[in-house]
Write a protein that binds this DNA or RNA. Structure first.
Lengths: 141, 141
DNA sequence: TGTTGATAGTCCGTTTTGTAACTAACAAGC
DNA sequence: GCTTGTTAGTTACAAAACGGACTATCAACA
C-alpha cells in the first residue's frame, strides 16, 4: 500500500478508538452527570455491587486496573458515602470494601441504565451484529 | 436483565474500550519509541503527510480534534524539526504548515508500519472478519 | 475610519493519569 | 526474635488532557 492510498479512517486502531470514545461518551454521561463519578469509580462500584465484599487487590486483579487507580477510586467512592472500608482481621494491611445503601442504589440504577444502553444498541445494529461485534472484539483481546 | 447476570466483560462500551486500548498500544509503541510522539502528533503528522500543506484549522476540522490539541501537537512537531510554519500572506492569523524532510521520513515510515500492522491483523482475524469489524465500527459512528 | 462580530491560534488553570517511592504489615528461615 | 523478601495500599510528583479565556487579525458596514 502506497502512502497516497492510506486513510486514517480505515485504520483499525483509529476506528476502534473513535467508536470506543463515541460509545463511552453515551454511557459515561450517565454516571458522570448523575453521580459525579469517573470511569474507574464506576468500574469499582460495579465490582463491589456484582461480587460483594472485595479488597482493593481483588478488584485490581479482576478488573485489571492498576492499584493506584483503585486507591483513588475507592477514596472518591468513600467520600460519596457509596462504600465502607474496614481493616481485615486476618491481614491488617488489607481493607474489606462493601457498598453502603447509596452505593447499592447507584449500582442498581447504573446496571439498569447499562441494560437499556445495550437494548438501544441492539435496536440500532440488530442482535446478530452486536453479537458479531462482541465476538470480534473479544478475539482482539 | 437482572444485576446478577450483568457482566462488565459483555458490556459493549467496556469491550470497545479494552480492544481500542490494546490495539492502540501496539501501534502507539512505534511512534512513541521511535520518535517520542504522542497520538495527536501522529495524527497531525499524518494529515500533513497525506494531504500536504494545511493550516491548524484545516487539520482541526478534517481530523475532528480540538484546536488546542492541534496547537500543542504542532509545537511539539516543530520542536522535533518535523514541520515548518509560515504565516499566511492572505490571512496573517493563519499559519501554513508543511512537513520538513525528517517529518516526511517519519510519515513514510509510520504509514509503512501501519500497513504492516493491518496485514498482521488480517493474518490473525482473517480478511473477511477485519472488513466486518470495520463495517460495524463505522456503523457505530 | 471606527465599530462590531467572527476567526486562527495560544495560554493558563484545573483535572486526570502514570509511576516510582514509601509505609505498614506479613511470612519464612534462621 | 531478627533478618530478608514480599505484599496491600497510599503518597508525591511528573506527564498529559481539557477547555475556557485571551490576543491578534480579519471582514463587513455604517
Amino acid at each position: 500500500m502506497h502512502h497516497d492510498d492510506f486513510q486514517l479512517a480505515g485504520f483499525t486502531p483509529y476506528l476502534l478508538n473513535q467508536a470506543a470514545e463515541a460509545q463511552s461518551l453515551i454511557f459515561s454521561a450517565i454516571y458522570k452527570d448523575r453521580y459525579g463519578m469517573l470511569r474507574n469509580e464506576w468500574r469499582v462500584l460495579f465490582h463491589l455491587g456484582r461480587y460483594g465484599e472485595m479488597t482493593a487487590k481483588d478488584i485490581s486483579e479482576k478488573a485489571m486496573i492498576h492499584k493506584t487507580k483503585i486507591s483513588r477510586a475507592v477514596r472518591a467512592l468513600e467520600e460519596k458515602r457509596f462504600l465502607a472500608r474496614e481493616v481485615s482481621e486476618e491481614d491488617r494491611r488489607a481493607e474489606r470494601l462493601t457498598l453502603r445503601a447509596p452505593g447499592r442504589e447507584a449500582f442498581e440504577y447504573l446496571v439498569k441504565a447499562a441494560g437499556e444502553y445495550e437494548d438501544r444498541l441492539a435496536g440500532k445494529l440488530g442482535q446478530d451484529e452486536v453479537q458479531m461485534l462482541k465476538a470480534l472484539l473479544n478475539k482482539l483481546l
